[in-house]
């Protein structure tokens, strides 16, 4: 039999994009330590629904830590107090009976709150659309391993490609900078031969879009790296800067 706990939640409630939000206090009773954080919120929402109240709105999808949908700043930390985990994979055993938990949405001008704890992260999608892809001619399926890629390079690209686009980097950054996300998306292609054709156009286009969305600039505090649930490294940002400055100072290509 696992331990049960009672918690006080201070949750950000906001009807929609335009209305002002505020904190509302809820009691979460008889919470099992084996529950995930989202399951705990499900229990609270069930109570709210029974009482005829509007349930707390939060983003979630796979609940396996791979889709990047869940968010939540829990006691001042994106995805909660554990390192290298998403909110859905955060278990209640990391909290204790009687604790007060403050739950807030990602805070950034580029991530407007849609309702309660859910924010609009389409800014990330527009950045991806600006250059986070490669153009190839469709046709017959190419043979596997036709293009030789050293294991070390493949690993680097894969590490960057691990980014799930959850936005915790933006939430953690004191400047709400999207540098870690954008740099991971640039780096995954910059490492690989398939990404070379549009390499410098991509860096410029994605950085331009990042700025247009109103994200802040990178101060290299490392908060993003520390809070990233999948361990994207600051090295990606150094690489993005190098790609961008190389494009601006030494290359001819403009962007499409």
């Amino acid at each position: 039999m696992s331990e049960q706990m009672n918690l006080t939640l201070k949750v950000w409630r906001q009807k929609n994009k335009n209305e002002k939000g505020r904190f509302v206090t809820y009691q979460a009773k008889e919470i099992s330590e084996d529950m995930s954080f989202l399951e705990m919120l499900d229990v609270v929402n069930e109570e709210n629904t029974k009482k005829g109240e509007d349930p707390i709105y939060f983003d979630h999808d796979c609940r396996e830590g791979i889709c990047g949908m869940c968010s939540l700043v829990i006691n001042g930390r994106p995805h909660g107090p554990e390192y290298g985990t998403t909110t859905c994979q955060l278990h209640m055993r990391h909290f204790h009976d009687g604790q007060t938990i403050v739950i807030e949405p990602w805070r950034a001008a580029a991530f407007p709150v849609l309702k309660d704890l859910a924010v609009d992260r389409t800014a990330f999608e527009r950045i991806q659309q600006a250059g986070g892809y490669i153009n190839i001619n469709t046709g017959g399926v190419p043979d596997a391993n036709e293009i030789p890629i050293p294991k070390r390079i493949a690993d680097q690209a894969f590490e960057s490609a691990t980014c799930i686009g959850c936005g915790a980097c933006v939430a953690a950054c004191k400047n709400a900078s999207a540098a870690l996300f954008v740099s991971a998306k640039i780096a995954q292609f910059a490492h690989l031969p398939q990404g070379q054709t549009e390499r410098y156009e991509r860096a410029q286009a994605m950085v331009d879009q990042m700025d247009a969305e109103g994200f802040g600039s990178c101060t290299n505090t490392g908060a993003c790296e520390a809070e990233c649930p999948v361990g994207i490294k600051l090295d990606n940002i150094a690489l993005m800067n190098k790609e961008y400055f190389t494009a601006k100072l030494f290359r001819e290509e403009d962007i499409h």
Partner: peptide, 26 residues
Amino acid sequence: KNKAARPIGYNQSSGNANSKWNSRNM
């Protein structure tokens, strides 16, 4: 520009958990 990127701040923040004080207060 950075201030404008986060018009509404956090109620709770624990910066020391993920970064150094001096890096946030240059």
